[in-house]
Lab assay of single mutants.
Amino acid sequence: NITNLCPFDEVFNATRFASVYAWNRKRISNCVADYSVLYNFAPFFAFKCYGVSPTKLNDLCFTNVYADSFVIRGNEVSQIAPGQTGNIADYNYKLPDDFTGCVIAWNSNKLDSKVGGNYNYLYRLFRKSNLKPFERDISTEIYQAGNKPCNGVAGFNCYFPLRSYGFRPTYGVGHQPYRVVVLSFELLHAPATVCGPKKST
C-alpha cells in the first residue's frame, strides 16, 4: 500500500531547467500520482495528452512514469508532439509516433530571460542525422557541412553544433522561453508502482 505522493513538484518547480539538447529525465516510481494538482495549476500554456485522457489519469496505474524537462522557445512547443519535424524534434528531443503521455508547457519569461540576454539555454542546430525517439545527444563535436574534414576547428563550413537562445524579456511570445515537462507513461508486464489516488488503496 503506497502512500507517499509522487515528487512532481520537484520537477515542475525546479529552480533551473535543462537546455533542450541535454534534456533532463527523472524516473518516478513507487508513489501516488495526483495529476489533478498539475491539471489545476493555472499558468499552463499547453497540457496535451496522447493515448490517454488527462482527466482519467487519476484512475490509472503505470509501471513507471518518466518526467523529461527542458526549455525551448514558445514557437517550438508545437514540435513536442508525435510525428513532428523541425530543429527541436529532429536534433534535440524526439517523441515516438506511438507516444503515451502528456506534454505540459508554460511561459517562463520572468524566470529564464535576462536584460542583455540569458545565454545559458542551448539547443542543437546541426546534426548529421535525426534523433531516434528519446535519444539524447550531448556531443559538442564540430559539425562538418562541406567535404573538408574540420579536425575539431570551427570555421568555413565547420560549425559548433550548439546555439544559444539568448532570451531577453522584451522578445515577442514566440521567442520567449517556455518550460516543458513531458510525462511518459510506461506500461510493462510488471507490477504497477505509480497509481492515481483512487487506485492506491
Rank of each mutant, 00 (worst) to 15 (best):
G117P: 08
C102R: 00
Y121V: 06
C150F: 05
P43M: 04
V65L: 11
L162E: 04
R163T: 12
Y91I: 05
Y171L: 15
P7C: 09
K48E: 09
P149K: 13
L183V: 05
T3Y: 07
Y50R: 01
F134Y: 14
A42T: 07
K148W: 10
S200D: 13
C6G: 05
R179D: 03
I80V: 08
E135V: 05
V20G: 03
Y159E: 15
F99W: 10
A89K: 04
R136G: 03
F41K: 11
R16P: 04
W106Y: 10
N58H: 10
N1L: 06
R168G: 08
F99C: 00
F44N: 14
N13D: 01
V20R: 02
A67G: 00
E186I: 00
A18T: 06
E141K: 11
E10I: 06
P169K: 08
C195D: 12
R179N: 04
N109R: 07
Y143V: 11
V173E: 15
I142D: 07
K26I: 09
S129G: 11
Y91N: 08
G101N: 00
P82A: 01
D97T: 09
F8K: 01
L187K: 14
N107G: 05
K26N: 05
I2T: 13
S113P: 03
P54D: 07
L131P: 02
R136M: 06
N1R: 08
V180K: 00
L188K: 15
K199Y: 14
V153W: 09
G116Q: 12
Y93P: 01
C102S: 00
R179I: 03
V65W: 02
V37I: 13
G116M: 10
P191H: 12
G117I: 06
P197Q: 15
L5F: 11
A89L: 02
G172N: 14
C195N: 12
T170N: 13
S184V: 11
A154Y: 09
D112S: 00
T201W: 13
G116N: 14
P197F: 15
I80E: 03
S78V: 08
F17C: 03
F12T: 02
S200A: 14
S53Y: 07
C61V: 10
D97Y: 07
F44G: 13
N64I: 07
Y35F: 15
Y93N: 01
G86P: 02
F47T: 07
Y143W: 11
F12R: 01
S36K: 12
E141N: 13
V32D: 07
R27K: 15
T15Y: 00
Y91D: 03
C102G: 00
K56L: 09
P54K: 15
N13Y: 01
N40T: 12
Y159R: 13
S69Q: 03
G174F: 08
P54H: 10
F99Y: 03
H189K: 12
R16S: 13
F12V: 05
Y165Q: 04
G101L: 01
C31M: 05
P133D: 06
V173R: 12
C195A: 11
N109A: 12
F47G: 04
S36C: 03
Y21N: 04
S36D: 13
D98R: 09
F99E: 00
D97F: 06
N92L: 02
K94W: 00
I104K: 00
V180Y: 00
A105L: 03
R179Q: 03
K110H: 15
W106A: 01
G51C: 01
L5Q: 11
N120Q: 14
H175P: 04
A42P: 06
C158L: 04
V115W: 10
L57E: 05
P191W: 05
K94E: 01
E10Y: 05
A67N: 05
F12E: 01
N64V: 10
T3W: 04
G51W: 00
P169E: 10
A33C: 08
Y50A: 01
S69Y: 04
K132V: 08
Y121W: 05
K26P: 01
F167E: 05
H175K: 10
Y159L: 12
Y171W: 12
R16V: 13
D34H: 04
N130R: 14
A46D: 10
G51F: 01
L60N: 07
A192D: 13
I2Y: 12
A18C: 05
S53L: 09
V182P: 00
H189W: 07
F70H: 01
L60C: 08
I28T: 03
V77G: 02
G74V: 03
P177A: 08
H175M: 14
V65Y: 04
Y35C: 06
V20I: 06
V11Q: 03
A190P: 12
Y35N: 06
V181Y: 02
N87C: 10
I28P: 02
S164T: 12
Q144Y: 05
Y165I: 03
V173M: 12
K56E: 14
P82H: 01
N120W: 07
G172M: 10
C150H: 06
S69I: 01
W23F: 10
N118A: 09
S164Q: 10
F17M: 06
D98L: 05
P197T: 14
I142W: 09
G86D: 02
F70N: 02
T140N: 12
I142E: 07
G51Q: 07
L122C: 12
L183H: 00
G116H: 12
S53H: 11
L187I: 14
S29W: 06
K48W: 03
G196A: 10
L131C: 04
L111C: 08
Q79E: 07
F12K: 01
I104L: 10
R163W: 06
F156D: 15
T100S: 07
D97K: 10
L38T: 02
S184D: 03
T201H: 13
D9N: 14
A89E: 01
T201Q: 14
V37H: 10
S139E: 10
S108M: 04
K114Q: 14
G83E: 06
